[in-house]
Design a protein around this nucleic acid. Structure first.
Lengths: 212, 212, 212, 212
DNA sequence: ACGGGCGGGACGACCCGTTTTT
DNA sequence: AAAAACGGGTCGTCCCGCCCGT
């Protein structure tokens, strides 16, 4: 299925390719390839040359677009964050318990975007190491999700959908923990684990616990 | 105390060893230092030289005891596994629901052995990357824990302590996921998160769910 | 306006230049910037990008005007040579001992044109290295000055102003050596050394020695 | 004298190589080779690989002995300084005017140790560039020589050998300038210039000026 | 047996001058 | 005049072997 090397629009009508545009890789291609490779091999385990290879450039070619490896990382992370944020907004839109119910589909989304999931796993993993540049990014992401979930629970309590004595902080933390952990297992099982239904089940149990 | 460089048993060097032999680092020291460093910086992020430095040897000195870096890794992992297995046996000893209740103390144990926890996190993290030598090790560990928890649940069902309709597989998987995830959060919070009580709470909820 | 990008003569752009041309850097600007940077960091220590930055262009922009880095160097050197030659002609104009006396002001001129002096120092310095492209240029300059001074002395002898037994060759060589060396010291002293009076003193001593 | 490139014994009889020290390049060889290359091509113009080549090692081999390029530079400079200091002490030993007379032989010494002279020229040259690591070294050397010469003149004045109205500071400065400059010319003339007699002549003129 | 001095080959990121295309 | 890309090169790191002393 066309390994890599020409990721973009499939309807690009290659033959004509007027006026010798060599159809060079563009910035988006690079970010995409880097996303995949970072996700597969980790940030430190991925050399600029490997990314360049993927998109058919030389190291210098990539460094032309991104002055340093960490600039490339920033671009990758920023793009990931944008996708995640959009998704979270969509899920959270109804607010309260209903929003939480919606998040049950989160596992299915994971299965659909393995590259991004791989990236998040790898980033979480490497960020856990001391003195990693990825730490702040992961910490920020944790804080964001934590706040989001906590708010939904509190909102549910206000609306009377959720029992007032639930420990919102702990629930948020436990949810994130489960999601992170199950994602790891998914990775280790080479996708064999049915993450979608596993996540759905967690939400069933969670919703029941929240309601009473 | 025994700063570095010769931490271990003082009752060695039995016979003469005259003339102030500088008390060189031994194999155990190296494994211990490697455990700490692997846990802090990851396996690939730790150079042999760094380990050697920690114990006051040269690279060659370390390589004398362990022919290669991965031999050192094996030793570290083996030691970790032994500790974990002993712990698990102790917790699981009563069997059934009671054993599961005992595991609630797992979080507290984590706080007591930060080096080993760090190692496990780092290993899980790096093993998640494709083509990592650590993968098989992590997979094996997952399988072991999975089996252990599953067996305890099944045993509890047999004993009538646990509802027969629980999904043992999913519970084991979810538990491991939570533990892995919460450990990560603990790491990212620089130990600020109260992992012991967070884990205890999970087990409370779990035990309640299993019973009724 | 004009942030950067066209510091020089304001009375250019004579006729139309309609439609707010952003007043791009011109060739002279580039040469001037290159002169300063070559003088400060040396030829090899100055990248085309650095020059481009100074004048607000991209590397490619500079390379549009000068096909290669050494073409830019040639332009810089040529301009420097023109300035020096004009100065020398002016000083040497009366000929004989009087011309030599005039050269006493050389130090003061140096202080007034620090960029060019910096360039000469840097060029002398780098040209001294083996296989440098700058060698021939420096050698030619040495020869020129040598000849000039030698001629003045010989002329002075003919005119009877200078003792006939002076060693013109050595005097020229020593003078140049002193000037080069004192210039270096000036540079190392960050301009603290009073090069003008130091040079003047050398000429006093020299003139006295020449006369008897 | 066995150019370079295979410093060891030429009759090395590869097969046997009894138990033996393969006569690897040692630290001194590296420093010496670096001295020559730095002198010929400058510090920045000399790669570690070039030095390694000269002594028959790989880059890594050299970096084993000197952790970084600037560590190697330090070693080279330190050695140079030691040689210079010893020489200066020897010349300056009688003190006063006599010591100054002795320095007339400085040019001849230069001719005998072209490598060190080359190094000094190159270092002076590169140090003149802004933000060079060599600056402080050169400044220190200047200060040392300045002080030495100044002291000798002052001593000569005290002893009554030198006229009391000489400007010791200027004389020191001018002497250094001449020496630096003439050295440069010597370099540019590819050794054709008779630096020994040129320097001697400067000292003759100098001594005469100091005395009367 | 233990420990280390010494060395290397591969690879890492990044920079620089330059050509090609628009 | 800029944008895109490349090839060569720099320093430095890493893992590991070949020796030799104790």
């Amino acid at each position: 299925m066309s390994q890599r090397t020409e990721p973009t629009k499939s309807n690009e009508a290659p033959p004509p390719r007027r006026r010798g545009r060599p159809a060079r890789a563009n910035v988006d291609d690079i970010v995409q390839a880097a996303t995949r490779l970072f996700g597969q091999r980790g940030f430190r385990g991925t050399s600029i040359a490997a990314v360049a290879d993927e998109v058919g450039l030389s190291d210098a070619g990539v460094l032309h677009h991104f002055p340093s490896k960490s600039a490339l990382l920033d671009a990758v992370l920023e793009q990931d964050l944008a996708v995640q944020a959009a998704l979270a907004r969509e899920f959270a839109e109804p607010g309260g318990l209903e929003a939480i119910r919606r998040f049950a589909a989160w596992g299915a989304v994971n299965e659909a975007t393995p590259d991004l999931v791989g990236l998040q796993i790898a980033v979480s993993a490497e960020g856990a190491l001391h003195q990693s540049d990825l730490r702040p990014y992961v910490v920020r992401r944790y804080a964001g999700v934590h706040l989001l979930i906590g708010d939904l629970i509190r909102e549910g309590v206000e609306r009377g959908e959720i029992r007032p004595d639930v420990d919102a902080e702990w629930e948020a933390s436990a949810l994130i923990a489960f999601l992170d952990g199950i994602r790891l297992q998914w990775r280790y099982s080479d996708g064999a684990l049915d993450i979608a239904s596993s996540v759905r089940k967690y939400f069933e149990v969670l919703v029941e616990r929240l309601q009473r």
